[in-house]
């Protein structure tokens, strides 16, 4: 709500030199793979080369001209979109329920929601694989969407719960005294105020699905392979620098998607 005003206070002043160097180090570690991969994708050589001796966009051409790469990209984006949609709808429902309803075991359910984040990915993957075999969901879009939704849900629930916790319920009371029905209040006050949180949840879910590889490896069939699976397969079979181009594109896409909520919020607070 008042993001525009509050965070500025504690930032610059609070960071001492020690803390600043730690932040810089962590930032460097996080950025390192990208710093290597992106230049590599523009290499003109036939194999991986860092730093590249000459530059070209041949691997991007290879990527966009390959039916297999393009197909897996399309698959990934479609699945990620469906996952984001499903996880957002479910996650908003769960977050509202946990915030507004008073019932026994609320905290237990909240913790349970976080389970997929805590469990090792491979364990979740094997479990899902086993169950989906029986349900005949392996290699189906439904299977991918269902599995990724389970992984994405905790993110949505967390982000939306945080917005809800910051939501001042006197807004609802105030709207009621001004003559608004519960429905009007929901759409004219609650929804606009929670929209940034919900959008963040959507984006997190999208990116979670886009990046996921372990479960996707288990669920894949030749007919349905996501981009990360295609990348994995491509390096186990041959040394093909197209993967560097694919990775760079993924980094770019993810960054743009993650920036969306931030930009929306910025625009809101300045308009």
């Amino acid at each position: 709500m008042s993001d525009a005003v509050k965070p500025a206070v504690g930032r610059d002043h609070a960071l001492g030199w020690g803390l600043k160097s730690v932040v810089a180090l962590v930032g460097l570690l996080l950025a390192a793979p990208t710093v290597v991969v992106v230049p590599m994708s523009f290499s003109g050589a036939d194999t991986f080369e860092f730093p590249p001796k000459n530059w070209s966009v041949r691997w991007y051409e290879a990527f966009f001209n390959s039916e297999r790469w393009m197909f897996s990209l399309l698959t990934s984006v479609q699945i990620a979109f469906l996952v984001a949609l499903t996880a957002t709808v479910l996650g908003v429902g769960v977050a509202f329920g946990l915030d507004r309803a008073r019932f026994k075991g609320r905290n237990a359910i909240r913790s349970l929601m976080m389970a997929p984040m805590i469990m090792p990915g491979i364990v979740v993957a094997v479990a899902i694989y086993g169950v989906f075999l029986r349900w005949q969901l392996n290699g189906t879009a439904t299977g991918f969407v269902a599995a990724h939704t389970v992984l994405a849900l905790p993110f949505v629930v967390t982000v939306v719960s945080t917005s809800l916790a910051g939501y001042d319920r006197t807004m609802d009371v105030a709207a009621a005294t001004l003559g608004a029905t519960a429905l009007t209040t929901f759409f004219r006050v609650t929804v606009p105020l929670l929209a940034p949180g919900v959008l963040s949840g959507f984006v997190f879910a999208f990116v979670t699905s886009l990046d996921e590889v372990v479960i996707a490896l288990f669920l894949q069939t030749p007919d349905i392979q996501t981009l990360p699976v295609q990348m994995y397969n491509s390096i186990t079979l041959e040394i093909d620098p197209t993967i560097a181009a694919a990775s760079s594109l993924m980094v770019a896409a993810t960054t743009i998607v993650l920036l969306v909520p931030l930009l929306v919020r910025r625009k809101r607070s300045t308009s």
């Binding site: 709500m1 008042s2 001042d168 006197t170 807004m171 009371v173 105030a174 709207a175 009621a176 005294t177 001004l178 003559g179 608004a180 029905t181 006050v189 606009p192 105020l193 809101r268």
Partner: peptide, 20 residues
Amino acid sequence: LKPHRRNLGVVFQQYALFPH
């Protein structure tokens, strides 16, 4: 009667303006 049917004005300590 529900609050929105009472036609009263209310002012709260924390203003309760719609921030958006």
